[in-house]
């Protein structure tokens, strides 16, 4: 693995370690519980986007798996 890859992992670990003091109590979730506040809200839009950009650009995935796709890229 190269330096870039190690940097990515280190960066993720630093972000994750800073998470423990964040958060809310269960009764404070009224806004976060809205469907449009889900990280994967508009799932079909995300799937269409992934399909389009996979076919037009050299990058894919990130939020989900990069995958090998349809064989056209």
């Amino acid at each position: 693995m190269n330096i870039k890859c190690h940097s990515l992992i280190l960066c993720g670990a630093l972000i994750a370690s800073g998470c423990s003091s964040l958060g809310v109590k269960p009764w404070e979730r009224d806004l976060l519980a809205r469907e449009d506040m889900l990280m994967n809200a508009d799932a079909l839009d995300l799937a269409f986007d992934e399909h389009i950009y996979f076919s037009k650009e050299a990058s894919s995935g990130g939020q989900g798996f990069a995958g090998g796709g349809c064989g056209c890229n």
Binding site: A16, L22, L31
Partner: peptide
């Protein structure tokens, strides 16, 4: 990792 920051 998905992390709640605050109520919003």
């Amino acid at each position: 990792v998905t992390q709640v920051i605050d109520r919003s």
